[in-house]
């Protein structure tokens, strides 16, 4: 009816509302960042990371930490909305369900990227690699976009089930396994430990394909299930 602006304006509104709520409550970003650091400490004990093995292990540890912290962040995306009833209020507004999906996804993407941006330098120091290679930044952005695309849909699904804390990771991890593989491989290439024959470019492409597919599929499915 109001064209592109009619679709984009509500996306911006929803995302900004989520950022404002997060700015006040601060439960998502700080919670998942602290959790990610905790995970790295645990992995350090579990894998006994030494200077000889750090290049091989660091990308895996990094992405295990990012993806677990991401699940923590995305599980909050709809839990608060659902529990205070505001999701229903949101769905009663005339904006398209796509806009609601993209608004929630954008906010989740920003939260996760903020956590990752804060932690990358910390990891770079701990594991002694350069955090500022374009490949690494590209890998982080593409992987986070894929996580957010699938995570927003699954979070909306899981929030309505009885054991939501269990359902979200069970549904999420198998589906995003290509992204995790791609992110780990691209990171390996980027921080120079590369046994990577094909180079990180191929992995960035794989993640870009994943993102493209699920950024089309997920909003469509979201709008179908939001009208029960």
């Amino acid at each position: 009816m109001r064209g592109v602006k009619g679709l984009l304006w509500p996306v911006f509104l929803v995302a900004r509302k989520d950022l404002l709520v997060e700015f006040r409550s601060r439960e998502v970003v700080i919670g998942s960042a602290v959790f990610a650091v905790t995970l790295v400490v645990i992995f350090n004990f579990a894998l006994n990371i030494t200077p000889e093995t750090v290049d091989i292990l660091a990308p895996g540890v990094l992405w295990a930490a990012f993806s677990f912290a991401g699940v923590l962040a995305m599980s909050r995306a709809f839990v608060t909305e659902k529990d205070q009833g505001s999701l229903e209020g949101l769905l009663l507004t005339p904006v398209s369900r796509d806009s609601i999906y993209f608004g929630k996804m954008l906010a989740l993407f920003i939260f996760m990227t903020a956590v990752e941006a804060a932690l990358l330098p910390v990891f770079a120091v701990l594991f002694d690699f350069s955090a500022f290679s374009p490949t690494l930044v590209g890998a982080v952005l593409l992987a986070t976009l894929g996580f957010a695309a699938v995570g927003t849909l699954f979070s909306a699904v899981a929030v309505n089930t009885r054991s939501r804390e269990i359902m979200l990771p069970i549904l999420f991890f198998p589906v995003v396994s290509p992204v995790i593989i791609g992110a780990v491989e691209a990171t390996t290439g980027a921080i120079g430990a590369g046994v990577s024959a094909a180079g990180p470019g191929r992995w960035l492409q794989l993640m870009a394909v994943f993102d493209a597919v699920f950024l089309v599929l997920c909003p469509w499915l979201f709008s179908l299930i939001m009208e029960e």
């Binding site: 699938v150 849909l153 699904v157 309505n160 089930t161 549904l171 198998p174 589906v175 396994s177 290509p178 593989i181 791609g182 491989e185 046994v195 990577s196 024959a197 094909a198 191929r202 992995w203 794989l206 394909v209 994943f210 597919v213 699920f214 599929l217 997920c218 499915l221 179908l224 299930i225 029960e228």
Partner: peptide, 27 residues
Amino acid sequence: LYSAVLGIVGFVDVPIVYFAVDWWRTQ
């Protein structure tokens, strides 16, 4: 309704998973 969502997402995901694992293995 929800499982239908997963039925679609899962099936679309399969080829991507396969390619990812295949490339990963060859490396």
